[in-house]
Nucleic acid binder design. Structure first.
Lengths: 209, 209
DNA sequence: TTTAACAATTGGTCAGACCACATAAATCTC
DNA sequence: GAGATTTATGTGGTCTGACCAATTGTTAAA
């Protein structure tokens, strides 16, 4: 025995053993993992090593740790791949243009994607958005856009958009688009009538080059 | 003092501070980060917290730690997010679909973006691609696509594409597109003639829904 | 000069302590 | 007895200090 990984560090082997444990016991989203102390004892390693493994998986979004409760398996779709990469990949400050461009491109693509939805489905979506707007829940046109991108169905795109938005909301000032019910209604109409031109006007894409 | 992030865990804030430090000092691949003990002292936190941050970033492949030497920044392309996700996130067709879809979007958008380039500029680009193809430098149609996405000018899109490609090359088998000079030439012609339809055919996008 | 021994630095791991948070059990109050 | 309150226990969060192991640079010996 013990051929697992002689060269590896302890916390790496713990990650692997956790993986095996999850597969073997058929654990799934929401299930609780053993406590740090129990794992430490059961695997014969220090608690700090267990924590290093847990923290790594937590940063990735694969597990969720709740203070005083324990550690739980998370829905893998909540993974933080995008954020993490963004943090270390989007390092060029001068690439703000790239960020804005990709962001508005995702917006445009997401909206176009909603053309396939039925009118009643779209109406339902927009009623919800409007009510939340009147409720003060959505406080900017970006919030509305977030709803639309999310509603388009591609969760990955949505995550990418969130990251991009976070970046350029720190550097760019919005206020380039009115934020009232009429604007939202016109977006609704543009989608329902599949009016490419109007959408392009509403969500003005930045010029290439 | 000390109201930076009362709700966040220490190791998370360390990750952020590391990110800021990297940006501020302009560190890049291969550069050395401060030692665990120095960071611990400089940030006023325990060494174990610094280690949790380092171990998390190391597992993701964003940094590399060498026993007795120190911790170094890695090329982001070496990240292991994909394997890790694949390890814990097995069967999710929707996630895979999202990835492929976003990837295809970027490909398609990048190619369309090249419509604004002059014909001679495009010819130069493709001469280079063809010569590298004959040279054995590009070994798959994906390599060609990488060149095109990169040439489209948005470096961020390119980086995102690289990540997505890494993922679905690990799960999907390619071989859905011939890889010869004629195919490349036809892409070239499609761009020059601004033939949306042909591009759509060549780079078959996945079906929505 | 070359080589060998040594010291300093750095990561790897562990043990124990203490705090903060959450929940269930025991207790008190009415 | 029902409800509110206190207590006990378990769990994560963090720090400190210790020791080992690998690497590198310095020093001393050949």
């Amino acid at each position: 025995m013990e051929r697992s990984k002689p060269h590896s560090k302890i916390y790496i082997s713990i990650v692997h053993q956790l993986n095996e444990m999850i597969l073997r016991d058929g654990l799934s989203t929401g299930d609780r993992l053993p406590s740090e102390r129990e794992l430490s004892e059961r695997l014969g390693v220090g608690r700090s090593s267990v924590r290093e493994a847990f923290r790594a998986l937590e940063l990735l979004g694969l597990i969720e740790t709740r203070h005083g409760e324990g550690t739980f398996l998370r829905d893998f779709r909540d993974h933080r791949l995008v954020e993490l990469l963004g943090m270390f990949v989007i390092q060029d400050r001068q690439a703000e243009h790239d960020i804005m461009e990709l962001k508005s491109w995702i917006e445009s693509e997401s909206i176009h994607r909603m053309f396939i939805h039925s009118e009643e489905k779209l109406n339902l979506l927009f009623e919800d958005i409007i009510s939340r707007f009147n409720n003060g829940d959505l406080t900017s046109i970006s919030d509305v856009m977030a709803e639309l991108v999310q509603a388009s169905g591609n969760r990955l795109s949505y995550k990418v958009w969130l990251v991009l938005h976070e970046f350029d909301s720190n550097t760019q000032q919005p206020a380039n688009m009115p934020f009232d019910e009429m604007t939202i209604r016109s977006i609704q109409q543009a989608i329902i009538s599949k009016n490419h031109q109007l959408i392009h006007t509403l969500c003005k894409k930045p010029q290439y080059e």
